[in-house]
Amino acid sequence: MWRHYTFRTLDNQKNLHSHHFPSPLSGEQEVSAYGDEGAGDTGDHWELVCSNDEWVRDAHVRLRHLDTGSYLGMSGRSFGRPISGQMEVVGFSSPQHGTRWTTAEGLYIVPKDKGSHEEYAHIEL
């Protein structure tokens, strides 16, 4: 199942961004933080690819970049500077094991049935 999202980093509220540019360590597609206060461009748009019909807790998902078609992943390499030990986050041209992500924290929202008159229910994790 595909859903479109813009993701923001927790620390500086910049958008998860990518474009056709090689990453510094592995030469894969660069992924960075971009924009201020939610402002950005189409390089900030990602599709959420669920392993099921719905995004449920503990299920694997993939993030696919809309402009380039790459999948968010970890290159397995880490930086020495500016932040020693920070892992390189990149875009891979095809889905592979390193592009699977699992929900660990967040907000779970139960969707309302189309025929139901009940309000949305949610559980905070």
Rank of each mutant, 00 (worst) to 15 (best):
R3K: 09
H4W: 05
Y5V: 01
Y5K: 00
T6R: 07
T6G: 00
F7M: 10
F7H: 01
L10H: 09
N12W: 04
K14S: 02
K14V: 01
K14T: 06
N15W: 01
N15D: 12
N15V: 00
N15S: 07
L16P: 01
H17N: 03
H19N: 05
H20W: 08
F21H: 13
F21G: 15
F21P: 02
P22Y: 06
P22S: 04
L25Y: 05
S26P: 10
G27Q: 07
E28Q: 14
E28M: 08
E28I: 00
V31N: 09
S32E: 07
A33E: 04
A33S: 09
A33D: 00
A33L: 04
Y34R: 09
Y34P: 00
G35L: 03
D36V: 14
D36P: 03
E37W: 04
E37H: 12
E37Q: 14
G38V: 02
A39V: 11
A39H: 11
G40H: 07
G40V: 04
G40D: 01
D41L: 03
D44Y: 02
D44Q: 08
H45R: 09
H45W: 01
W46A: 00
W46V: 01
W46D: 01
W46Y: 04
E47N: 08
E47F: 03
E47Q: 14
V49W: 13
V49N: 15
C50I: 04
S51K: 11
S51T: 08
N52F: 05
W55G: 05
W55T: 10
W55P: 05
D58Y: 13
D58C: 07
A59E: 03
H60K: 10
V61F: 15
L63F: 14
R64D: 06
H65S: 05
H65N: 03
D67M: 15
T68V: 03
S70R: 00
S70Q: 02
L72W: 04
G73I: 02
M74N: 08
R77W: 14
S78Y: 10
F79E: 08
F79C: 04
G80S: 15
R81S: 09
R81W: 08
P82A: 09
P82T: 10
I83E: 11
I83K: 10
S84K: 14
S84L: 06
Q86Y: 14
Q86A: 14
M87K: 13
M87C: 07
M87E: 07
E88H: 11
V89E: 01
V90M: 06
V90D: 01
V90E: 00
G91P: 04
G91Y: 04
G91H: 03
S93E: 05
S94H: 07
P95W: 06
P95M: 01
P95D: 06
Q96H: 13
H97T: 14
T99R: 07
T99H: 05
R100H: 15
R100M: 06
W101H: 12
W101L: 12
T103C: 14
E105G: 04
G106A: 09
G106M: 06
G106W: 01
L107I: 11
L107C: 05
Y108P: 02
I109P: 02
V110N: 08
V110R: 14
P111A: 13
K112T: 15
K112P: 02
K112M: 11
K114D: 11
K114M: 10
K114I: 11
G115Q: 13
H117D: 15
H117N: 14
Y120M: 10
H122K: 13
H122D: 13
I123R: 15
L125F: 11
L125N: 06
